[in-house]
């Protein structure tokens, strides 16, 4: 296994996706690549928002340093659009440092248009995530 780079590109990365298969793939790839120092996985938008907003969360310190969120669109309870809508409820210190990248299996023009209305969306990636696509993320 190649050694992770001296300094990771990101402090904390959040994976927000309900597919446990995709979460496994993305987690392994991100850890292998050394893209970040800390990684958290949430199965829907609501749990991610709740965690980010909770000052007493056990990983509150790392969560406050979140700088990349990989966001799926289709999720139960609170989907990607719902997450983007509620995202500005978080503290500006947090929202200003975070890049949101939509990571979904197929993005149509309508979904792209809807999600681009959020100023926090920095890009789109079609699943599956690969090492090449991760390299592009590191260039954000």
């Amino acid at each position: 296994m190649s050694a992770p780079p001296e300094r990771s590109r990101f402090k904390t990365v959040l994976l927000v996706d309900d597919s446990r298969f995709d979460n496994l793939v993305h987690e392994r790839l991100i850890i292998r690549s050394g893209l970040c120092e800390h990684l958290e996985v949430y199965p829907n938008g609501k749990l991610a928002i709740d965690a980010l907003a909770d000052p007493n969360h056990e990983n509150a310190h790392q969560l406050a340093e979140t700088d990349l969120i990989l966001l799926d669109i289709n999720m139960p309870i609170l989907d990607g659009f719902g997450f983007l809508k509620r995202f500005p409820e978080l503290t500006p210190t947090l929202t200003q440092r975070v890049n949101v990248v939509i990571l979904t299996s197929y993005i149509n023009l309508e979904d792209k248009r809807r999600s681009s209305e959020s100023p926090f969306v920095a890009g789109y990636i079609n699943k599956p995530l690969t090492e090449d696509k991760l390299a592009e993320l590191a260039d954000l």
Binding site: S19, F21, D22, L24, V25, H26, R28, L29, R32, N74, S105, Y106, N126, K127, P128, L129, T130, E131
Partner: peptide, 17 residues
């Protein structure tokens, strides 16, 4: 598309590991 993307991702990571 979702499950297929998962299969592609899983085989890719499996290959690496």
């Amino acid at each position: 598309k979702g499950p297929i993307a998962s299969i592609l991702g899983l085989t890719n990571v499996a290959g690496l590991e």
